[in-house]
């Protein structure tokens, strides 16, 4: 019984992928890294209150947003909460980086476009 699978495995391709050569893309709807569209954000703070990991800090008065990708658990609660579609989860996962960094942007520093 086991012998047949051993022989089969001997002559068939591996079940795994040769990773750097063949990269598998995640299916649609995959919850990957969180990305913000800076121009759309109205600093309402809905994402920050919903975030279970406290990865997002929004200052409504100073109009600034601070996001720590290393606290993020990729649950997608922020993307669901955002009315403006500013927060989106990428198909790609969070890549490793050389140093700890946060995403910060500040609406007050930009020329006023949309409120």
């Amino acid at each position: 019984m086991m012998l047949s699978s051993v022989i089969r495995n001997l002559f068939s391709k591996p079940a795994t992928r040769p990773f750097p050569v063949a990269v598998r893309t995640a299916p649609d709807g995959y919850r990957g890294a969180v990305e913000f569209e800076e121009d759309v954000c109205i600093y309402c703070g809905a994402c920050a209150t919903r975030c279970p990991a406290n990865a997002i800090c929004v200052d409504r008065v100073a109009k600034s947003l601070d996001f720590d990708p290393f606290k993020c658990v990729q649950c997608g609660a922020c993307a669901e909460a955002c009315k403006k579609g500013c927060v989106q989860l990428q198909i790609d996962y969070q890549h490793p980086v050389a140093a700890h960094s946060t995403v910060t942007f500040n609406g007050a520093l930009k020329p006023p476009e949309a409120p």
Partner: peptide, 21 residues
């Protein structure tokens, strides 16, 4: 799981009142 719920392990598909997707 990855295809239907968006993640392999922590699928986060359940929410209060139903399912998320």
């Amino acid at each position: 799981f990855e295809k239907t719920a968006g993640s392999r392990v922590i699928i986060s598909a359940c929410c209060i009142g139903g399912v998320r997707r």
